[in-house]
């Protein structure tokens, strides 16, 4: 396996369930060692993607390759190199958490080969503060998720498929999670991280993809995506900002006391700065779009059709 083969390669992937098109010409590319954030509203097709990658579902058309191999045909071989954390973790109710973790580590280690490391397991159990002696039927959702996370992270694999891995975890555990993923990254592991927690994706991801209705609508590094979208500028000038009025790349211009607030398309920021400096800048604040704003742009019409205005949701950050 040479270093240039993408870890995940999906081209024009289509998956239909009866009349529902769950994946609609989906393209996804993940390089070795990359942490890839996978964002999208509920029902956009994130979990279906994961299950196609695991070879549990068969795409109707398109190409999918994991480490250059077919996830349906070569499932067993590929699964030696990956670990999966399901979105809604169901465990065997009569096993303890510790037993589930060990079971997975042993199943993965192929009859006692060296890569089953109890040291790492114990360390993770400690860091995630899990009581491994309790039966899993008594665990909360967060604790079931910890079990799945520990058994995935303690395994010596090249790829982690994480489907909303921290949905039930408390903020302290969220911090631990970010630490261990960063460590996994330095070990050279690739990660596909589906998540709703934007701060988490922002902190961890090298690149990210936004999926909507089974289709990737945006993909790239966070700064690339920011470049494509609007920067917010709050400025106080000596002269009125009238020269900027009516320009096609300026949006939502309004006055807030002394200041003028507006958004500008990413590729016109330079021009706007030039004209502003001619007006005598007294103070200026410019901030790049938050990830949330990026998302709002892509889910926005979804929300407005449901009667939620973008401006009210923007304040929740």
């Amino acid at each position: 396996m040479n270093g240039t083969t993408p870890v995940i390669y999906a081209q024009d992937l289509v998956k239909e369930f009866g009349p529902v098109r769950a994946l609609d010409n989906l393209n996804l590319n993940i390089a070795p060692g990359e942490v890839h954030g996978y964002l999208g509203p509920n029902g956009a097709g994130k979990s279906v993607t994961m299950r196609v990658l695991l070879g549990l579902l068969r795409p109707d058309s398109g190409t999918i390759r994991l480490f250059g191999q077919d996830p349906w045909k070569d499932a067993v071989e590929l699964h030696r190199r990956l670990a999966y954390v399901p979105g809604d973790v169901e465990l065997w109710p009569n096993l303890t958490g510790g037993e589930v973790i060990d079971m997975f580590l042993r199943l993965r280690s192929n009859a006692g080969e060296a890569n089953f490391s109890p040291k790492k397991r114990d360390e993770l159990i400690e860091r995630f503060d899990l009581d491994p002696r309790k039966k899993t039927r008594t665990y909360s959702k967060g604790n079931r998720q910890k079990v799945a996370l520990i058994s995935a992270l303690a395994a010596d694999v090249d790829l982690l498929l994480l489907d909303e891995p921290t949905a039930g975890l408390d903020p302290l555990m969220e911090v631990v999670f970010q630490e261990v993923i960063t460590e996994a990254k330095t070990e050279g592991k690739s990660v596909l991280l589906s998540s709703h927690i934007l701060a988490q994706v922002e902190a961890l991801s090298d690149r990210l993809s936004i999926i909507r209705a089974g289709h990737i609508v945006e993909s790239g590094t966070l700064s690339e995506l920011r470049h494509m979208t609007r920067t917010t500028i709050e400025v106080e000038t000596a002269q009125p900002t009238t020269p900027l009025h009516g320009l096609s790349f300026i949006h939502d211009m309004h006055a807030e006391g002394e200041r003028t607030v507006f958004e500008v398309d990413g590729d016109h920021v330079g021009e706007v700065m030039d004209s502003l400096s001619g007006l005598g800048i007294r103070s200026i604040v410019a901030h790049p779009p938050t990830l949330e704003q990026l998302l709002m742009r892509h889910y926005g019409d979804d929300l407005s059709s449901r009667g939620v205005s973008a401006s009210t949701t923007k304040k929740v950050s």
Binding site: N94, L95, L107, G112
Partner: peptide, 26 residues
């Protein structure tokens, strides 16, 4: 009250047959 179980799995659980056994045994 539920009793606490084992913190670590016996080696037998780490095989497909061991897993199936625990599922179906009850």
């Amino acid at each position: 009250s539920t009793r606490l179980g084992r913190a670590e799995a016996k080696p037998s659980l780490g095989t497909p047959v061991g897993m199936a056994g625990r599922t179906l045994w009850g």
